[in-house]
Write a protein that binds this DNA or RNA. Structure first.
Lengths: 248, 248
DNA sequence: GGTCGATTTTGATTTCAGTCAAGTTGGGTA
DNA sequence: TACCCAACTTGACTGAAATCAAAATCGACC
């Protein structure tokens, strides 16, 4: 029986946390993990639709997702929401607020989520005397930068089918990194949210899902996704064919 | 006589550098700037089309632009170039390589550029005993993250006119930050490159420039840009009108 | 000053995704 | 169980930007 993604449970300490290698503590010496644990605060779970923090709110902490899933979004000048990312367990949220002292975006739970809060002032103090932690922070920031770049890339002149294929493959990879199936998983967000992130309206999302299914690339049942032909998906997402520019 | 942007000259040391407040040394105590200076290497100028580094190359240093302008771009699977950013004096390049040990993208001079090279291993060592530098690095990374997010935002479901208006206003602001005119400046890149960055083909770029000019928002002469109606530009770029979603 | 290639422009046409308008489905709850 | 609202789907139509094709302009170099 294939196990469907739930991304649940992890122990109370960073030492035992199943997400250790994805999260802040990765590669830290044992005693440094101990120190980090000293400042991490476990919050009571945030339920679906609840805020971890709101845009404009004073920046005090960064947050690591332990279970569940979170979206970050900004309200644009005209009142529309723009979703800037989806965050799975082990990922760190709020790093974009370090410059400005205020959170530029809101973080909202897509499903009940447990969260580790890490007060930034204390993290900064700790990292002053913990080189390994300092390096780890730089690496995480750099990783985020790469992720954002790859999103830019995705939004820049790619067809709806390609965008969807890319994002499904990325989720596949991220679930696999968390020890879950790469081929069968449950998307934590609505089509509306995913479309918002991809720059596509819900109608297009619906039609695009259908087309991928008709081509035998995926099998869709609500939010449950099965990647049927991973090779063809990759060809569509990254392949030479389908580029809108390639004028051979 | 209005001074047209050239973004030239700055002294040999970080202390005297006109770009100090934009670049790494900002807010550092004098003695820390001295230490930073100790590891910064001044390279001989890179001429138009020359590489600061190439994608795939081993990551050793980050780079700060002193004069000129630089683009960073990746080669996609199908052979197309995707331009991920344009970099003006005072900006730091290469931070996206920290995670992977290799540069994910290439950096190419758009016009003759002088560059400061900062070996990352030495920077890391130095920042271990220089908290202010450490904080500065985190802030710069966070700033980059914000910039990437705002690019995402830009590419996500905005019209060609809006994209161009936003990017012109951003350049305006960046030139102003460097003490140059916010209303008259010279874009350092070709329309092809700017279009690539914005996800638009050159034909559309041309037509969109023309439309902005016809509406009396800007005045264009080759790469020389004059912002004629800054208010209307902002209304177009950020205003309530022009949202593709607002179904009032 | 003239030449060649790259860059930019212009026009005609096509196409993909957005818009508008109605359903349909499905999850939550009274 | 039945109701309700939100999420999703479907179909017809529209429109903005891509594509295709060709000409004009620019600018670097001899």
């Amino acid at each position: 029986m294939t196990r469907i993604a739930t991304l649940s449970e992890s122990r109370d300490s960073c030492h035992n946390c199943r997400l250790r290698t994805l999260c802040l503590p990765d590669n830290l010496p044992k005693e440094d993990i101990g120190k980090l644990e000293g400042i991490v605060q476990r919050r009571k779970p945030v339920s679906r639709g609840g805020y971890l923090f709101q845009a404009g709110q004073r920046f005090n902490s960064i947050y690591a997702v332990r279970t569940g899933a979170v979206k970050t979004s900004t309200l644009m000048a005209n009142g529309d929401e723009h979703i800037s990312g989806f965050h799975l367990p082990g990922e760190v949220i709020g790093l974009d607020a370090i410059v400005s002292r205020d959170h530029p975006s809101s973080a909202i739970a897509l499903e009940t989520a447990s969260i580790c809060e890490i007060p930034y002032a204390e993290l900064e103090t700790l990292s002053e005397r913990t080189p390994a932690l300092q390096h780890r922070l730089m690496r995480i920031m750099s990783r985020e930068l790469l992720a954002e770049q790859s999103t830019n890339h995705l939004l820049s002149r790619r067809s709806a089918e390609q965008r969807l294929a890319v994002v499904l493959l990325k989720f596949s990879e991220r679930f696999a990194d968390r020890g879950l199936s790469a081929l069968r998983f449950r998307l934590p967000m609505s089509r509306l949210d995913l479309g918002n992130y991809l720059g596509l309206v819900p109608e297009t999302m619906s039609r695009t899902f259908r087309r991928l299914e008709e081509q035998g690339l995926v099998s869709i049942a609500g939010k449950e996704i099965e990647i049927v032909d991973s090779g063809a998906m990759k060809a569509l997402a990254f392949g030479a064919e389908g580029s809108q520019t390639a004028r051979t």
